[in-house]
Every structure is written in structure tokens, then in C-alpha cells.
Design a protein around this nucleic acid. Structure first.
Lengths: 341, 341
DNA sequence: CTGTTAGCGCATTCAC
DNA sequence: GTGAATGCGCTAACAG
């Protein structure tokens, strides 16, 4: 783009007020060490001359930027969009800006995003890992450059950091307990890639609940790479046509629940009568379709706010080597028709 | 945040290679005026010493930033989330970063967002106006600071700029034509605030279609401030209990369609038999509920891509005073159950 | 409280 | 092709 025409600087203000540039700087930054008289003078003159602060120059001088970088798999998945909205809210309150990157579930793009953000001198990187990510060398780079670092939702235990996550094990446990209470006994689990912490934990919660409730665990009812409606449809069809059939599904995504629902239609089964279903994320559509879908509300917007809070209240202020806190975001079973009998 | 420890600079690279800093800079920027031998040397050394380019310093020196600012009403509305995702895609291709702001439909926040972005020295601001926005002084500031400027979706004609929008008049026209073809005759229009261009145009398209098709226009069937499910429910109840009732609704939002649907249930009417419905935006849920909802697909992700394309292919390269192009994004009537009889 | 000085890290003249 | 000098605009350290 064309270079800007020469812009008004603090030197211009200083000259036209016959004071020192540093006084102008202090006045504009609301420093204690400046009289309110000069502050007023400077502010008025700044308005008069249409002065705009050059954040870039200040950043260079200061060494920090008041910019936070966020990396998510997909901006336009409602779960992540809500988180970003929550983070943005916190950033505005603390006068920070937000640079957003999406990985589209690709490790390569994630690595690039991290590099870009490091070069931009962001103060902190907030990241939810891509499905592909199993190595963490690029995350080590964040630390090497002394940039603050919070993982959320999809986090890697392979690298130490602050984290913000749902209590996924508890959520899955409660979901199973809920299904059992409604009289379902043979509960299947449809999870995502097992290398991701959150799916491991949900599976763990599922297993523990079965054990505690005295329900039998059947390995054939546990599937790990089910992350889309299509996956859910196919796998549900397979299970429901086997000799030993489940009578309920715990899906780790509402989209997978949709697939299961479609499988039921194909096989002339109904929910909740024949088969119970509960999903994760409490997507908008779960309350609109028939039967309405039970789901685990993950409070994504609140998660975003808590991520921001964690950064501004703790991480930003901390000295080196403080304890790395792990924040748990509440969850809630939203019972709807698909699991009510 | 804590100041970074002293980082490797081009001076460090220069010293350890016994060449001039400026040569390092040129090598890293792939300048013509540098031998490939030195380029190689520099690159290797950079990797060895873990050099990271300081974008901030470069920006200050250059006068531009390769950062684009986006301002939308709500990040987590799927329409805007999709647009942002599309823009981000284009930015990555052209090695630009994206700063995101949301206004939550507040003019005050919009003004703040614009100021922040100007101070950040973004190269371009992409904006979709808040519902409150009727003045444009803050947008003039963008121009005064010689920052490129594209309006999309919700644009103000009060300020000249590049624009990217759907052909809203044509879309509404086609929606009415579609309803008419399905045998609906008394079509109501539920639009948003009339000061916004896109609602004006949709209403215009609606009126023109009625005229061209020989359908009677009834002022009582036209409502302008209907933007939520609740609004839609209330207003539909009112219209459907009046003496002269509509037999179809053109809603400028799918959420409003939901409200209309609920009104029908309350009144023991059914769609599409008694009442036809078509909405705007083609939200995910429109295909999931019963009856499935017809809608105008606005191709939001593609809109995002086209915004980015417009910037990188035209705006960024242009000299001053070129023609301000207005890009139209295609739309498409997605016919589903709610308008099929 | 106010002013002087220096330099953040880089890209860009302009010499050579 | 390469190098030496300059300054983008700001803030921080220090002196007064």
C-alpha cells in the first residue's frame, strides 16, 4: 500500500506547545509525573491537530505490544467462534487487540501461525491444537521467545503451560449417569482421535461411569475416530445391525448425534424410545430438531472469557516460574427429548 | 508483560558473519542486490542462532504493516464467522495478519474499534456496520489517515468506499417469485431496520416482485424491525389473527423464520400447507428442523474470500482515485419444505 | 514535575 | 554487490 503522508508526531505537538516531546508522551500516557494542566493542553492540541498515536513505534520501544494471538482450528465452528467472542470481550476491557489465525486442522498451518505471531511480537498466544498436532516443537518456540502461552480445549500435556479446559472426564461421567438413570444400559461411546487429551478424558469418564454404575463395558461399543455426521451415521448403522446392540450413544459431538439419529431413521428405530442419545457442545440446532437432542453444554463463550481473565489477572502479572494454573470450565447436562424416557 | 530478554538482531547475524547489517537485511528480504552466496550464509546463520524477524521494527521503518483489521457486529454469528474465515484464508495466502474487532451492534464500540485499528497502522479496514450506526464521522477518519477501506454486507452509502454485498434486491425478488410460483399470493415481508442499505434493498426487491407479478401490495404486511425469533413470533401472531391474513412470509433472517414457525404451531396452522416461509442466510439449522426451512443462501464464506481478493488484487495495488468498485456476491434460493406445495 | 538524551530493530538511501 | 549512516516515532532513564 502507499506510504502514509507524513503524520503528526509528538514532536509536532511538543513544538507547537513549546514543551519537550517526552512531556507530551507522558501526558498522553497519563503518567503520574506530569501536571494535569499540561495533560489538558496536550490533549486539546492533539485533538486540534488530529494526532494519532503510533502504536507500532511505541511497541518497538516498549518491547511489548498489547496484542494477543489466538490460534484455533476453525474460526467458523460455533464452539470456537464463541470462544473467540468471549476472548475479544476481555481484550477490549483491557485495551488489547486480538490477532486471529486458523489452522484448518493442519499442523503445517499451525506452525506457520505460531511463527507469524512470534514475529508480530504478540504478548501472549492462546491456542487450541489442530487434530493433526502431535509434535510440540513449534510450541517450544513460543516459550523460547518468552511469550506467554495458554492452551485451551485441545491441549497437549507434552508441553507445560497454563490451560483452560472443560472437565471432560466429569462431563462424560455425568452424561453416562444421566443415560443410565433414564434406563439405558448398553451405552456406546463415539469419540474423536485418541491422541487428543479431551477425547482421552471423555473416554475415561465414560469407562469410570460404567464401572461405578455396574454397567458392562463392551469394547465393540467404543469408537475413536467419529467426528462428523457421516462417521456417526456409518458407525451407528454398523453397531445397530450387529448381534449385540447398544441402546444408547454418548457422542462427543452434536454433529455425530445427528448421524446417529439418521441411522435410527434408516433402521426404523426411534429416539428416545428405542435408543438414547446425548452429544457434546449444545449446538444451536440441538433444541430445534425433532426429537430435540440432549447435549453437554460446554459454555464456550464463558470459556473465552475465562481464558482472557486468566491471562489478564494471572499470567500477565506473574513473575517467572509461578505455578501453571489449569482452569476448569463448568459443564452442564442439557436434557432434551433424545435421552428422556 | 515482562520485557523479552535481548533477542537476536540482524546486527548479531552481521557481526558473526563479518558482513554489514544492511546486507543481512537485504538477504533476509530476498533483495536482488545481494549474492545468493551471502543469502545462503545469512539464512543458515539465522537458523543457527534462532533469529526471529521483528515485524514491529520493520513496520515502523516501512510505514505499513501487512495487517488488516476487520470489524463485525458479532464474531460468533455464523454469517460473520464464515466471512471472517474466508477473509483469513485470503490473508494467509498473501502473508497478511488479521486483527478482529466486534461491535456488538454498538456505535460506541465501533468508533473505538476504528480508532484502535488506525493506531495499529493497519493497511486496510474491512467493516460491516453495527445496527446503531447512522453517522459516519469515524469512517471519515479512516480515509483521513490514508487507510484502505472496504465496507461489506451492511454498508453506508453516506461514505464512498469499495463495497462487497449480496445483490439483496435481486435475492428478495427471486424469493417472492419463488413463493408466488408455489401458489402463495399474499406475501408478507419481515425486514430489519430500514436505515440499513441491505434491508432497504430487500424491501425494494420485494415490492418490485409483487408489482411485476401482479400481486397486491398491502402496507400492513410489511414490518421493518423484525430481527429475532421473538420479534418474528409476535408479529406473525398479530398478522395471522387479523382480518386480512398473509399466506406466506419473506423473512430477512432464518431466526425470524423460526419465530413464524412457532406462531403457526400456536395457531394450529402448518407450513407449507397453510403458510409458506422463506428466510435469509441458509443457517445450518434450516435443513435440520421440520418442516425444513427454505432460505436464501448468501455464500458468506465466499463473500469473505471475495473481500480478501478485492483487497489484494485491486485495492492494495491501486493508485489514488481509482474507481471504487462494488462487488456483488451471488445468492441462491434454497428450496425446502417450508415453501414447497 | 519537566527536559535531555539515547536507542528499540529494521530498511533504505547513497557511497564505494 | 556490499557497507556506513540515518531515522521511522516513541518511551525510559536520568538529570535538573
Amino acid at each position: 500500500m502507499a506510504k502514509r503522508e507524513k503524520r503528526i508526531t509528538i514532536y509536532d505537538l511538543a513544538k507547537s506547545l513549546n514543551i519537550a516531546p517526552s512531556s507530551v508522551s507522558k501526558a498522553l500516557n497519563n503518567s503520574h509525573a506530569i501536571s494535569s494542566k499540561i495533560k489538558k493542553m496536550v490533549e486539546d492540541k492533539a485533538k486540534e491537530l488530529n494526532y494519532v498515536h503510533n502504536t507500532n513505534a511505541a511497541n518497538l520501544r516498549r518491547g511489548f505490544t498489547r496484542i494477543i494471538g489466538v490460534i484455533v482450528p476453525k474460526i467458523n465452528e460455533s464452539f470456537f467462534a464463541n470462544i473467540i467472542a468471549g476472548i475479544e470481550k476481555g481484550c477490549v476491557q483491557h485495551e488489547h487487540s486480538l490477532i486471529i489465525c486458523q489452522t484448518e486442522e493442519s499442523l503445517e498451518k499451525e506452525v506457520n501461525a505460531v511463527q507469524t505471531l512470534i514475529r508480530q511480537n504478540v504478548d501472549c498466544i492462546l491456542i487450541s491444537l489442530s487434530l493433526e498436532t502431535q509434535s510440540t516443537a513449534h510450541l517450544e518456540e513460543i516459550k523460547n521467545n518468552h511469550i506467554h502461552f495458554i492452551q485451551f480445549d485441545r491441549v497437549s500435556p507434552a508441553i507445560e503451560s497454563y490451560t483452560v479446559v472443560n472437565d471432560n472426564a466429569a462431563a462424560a461421567y455425568q452424561a453416562v449417569a444421566h443415560l443410565a438413570k433414564q434406563g439405558y444400559q448398553k451405552i456406546a461411546y463415539f469419540g474423536g482421535p485418541a491422541h487428543l487429551n479431551l477425547y482421552q478424558e471423555r473416554k475415561l469418564g465414560y469407562k469410570n461411569a460404567l464401572k461405578d454404575l455396574g454397567l458392562t463395558f463392551n469394547q465393540a461399543f467404543v469408537k475413536d475416530e467419529i467426528i462428523s455426521k457421516e462417521n456417526g451415521l456409518q458407525e451407528a448403522l454398523r453397531l445397530l445391525q450387529a448381534d449385540v446392540k447398544p441402546d444408547a450413544f454418548l457422542c462427543t459431538s452434536d454433529y455425530v448425534s445427528l448421524g446417529v439419529l439418521e441411522a435410527l431413521k434408516t433402521l426404523n428405530l426411534t429416539s428416545p424410545k428405542d435408543i438414547g442419545i446425548i452429544g457434546f457442545a449444545n449446538e444451536m440446532f440441538t433444541q430445534l430438531i425433532a426429537p430435540s437432542l440432549s447435549s453437554v453444554n460446554q459454555f464456550s463463550y464463558e470459556m473465552g472469557q475465562q481464558i482472557a481473565e486468566l491471562y489478564f489477572n494471572e499470567v500477565m502479572k506473574n513473575k517467572e516460574n509461578e505455578e501453571l494454573k489449569s482452569v476448569k470450565v463448568k459443564t452442564e447436562i442439557v436434557q432434551r427429548a433424545s435421552s428422556s424416557r
